[in-house]
Design a protein around this nucleic acid. Structure first.
Lengths: 140, 140
DNA sequence: CTTGACTTTGTACTTATTTTAAATTATATT
DNA sequence: AATATAATTTAAAATAAGTACAAAGTCAAG
């Protein structure tokens, strides 16, 4: 708790109980959760929590570059605690989103074709290694 | 019209009037339109058109790899006629989505970190060259 | 023609997100 | 400590995007 209180305080975000809890959740769960996932998980411990608060808090966190928004899927918006820039892999079999340790050539550049780059999102889709292995076993 | 009828026929999609019109629109407007944009534009010429038809048609086109879905923005789903793989730039100033002529190192590879790649989407965000120029002029 | 499969249409429904306003909590002032 | 002020949280209502489904329309094959 103290750790997250500190992080919020340093960024100039008033460290309320709800905000601390949401930040803690994001730090401890690198599952790229949706608003609902965060809400459902925290509601158990904080039954007064409102979904609006989750929306508001994530908006604030985003404004202060504490979280990033992933639109890798068409139907969901997912959030992640920013640690360092990386790309993502979405497995259409199991639905998991996996952090990739690849960086783009343009990650260090400021520009592409005259446009000023402020952020880059690389979304890879396909079948993850785990699901590939399972399929292999099934065929032998 | 004949051109699009042909394209649909070749892919095994029954070339109905609505489908031809939607495909024609996508080919002639590389603006990465939303469902609403497509609907609004075509409604003028085809007043009986239903929005459900636009959704259905785009789903079919996607299944047959005629169109690709962009989730570069959080609030909108945008569609584009597939010509060749490329990445996209979103300008937060003017809202335009610009095709980039850059290809990823992994574009030719089949794999990243053991996962099988089926598609790659590279989303760059920032300020486009046009808006940068405008801002420069304003400051001089 | 008539049949049957497919397509289109419009309405109703579901669900995610935003808005709004009241209630609560925290902070500052006297 | 009491009161005023501001910020935050909450719940409910409004909005909007997308989906499901049944009815009507289209069209080619027999």
């Amino acid at each position: 708790m103290e750790k997250y209180k500190q992080i919020l305080f340093e960024r100039g975000i008033k460290p309320t109980f709800q905000r601390i809890k949401i930040l803690e959740y994001l730090d401890k769960n690198h599952s790229h959760p949706t608003v609902d996932m965060i809400y459902a998980a925290l509601y158990k411990k904080v039954p007064t929590l409102s979904k609006t608060t989750v929306y508001n808090t994530l908006d604030i966190f985003r404004k202060y570059h504490l979280v990033d928004v992933l639109t890798i899927t068409e139907s969901e918006i997912r959030y992640e605690y920013i640690i360092q820039p990386h790309h993502h892999f979405y497995c259409r079999q199991c639905g998991k989103i996996i952090d990739l340790d690849v960086t783009c050539v343009y990650q260090e550049e400021m520009c592409v074709e005259g446009h000023r780059i402020e952020s880059i999102h690389g979304y890879f889709k396909g079948i993850c290694s785990e699901c590939l292995l399972k399929a292999e076993h099934a065929n032998s």
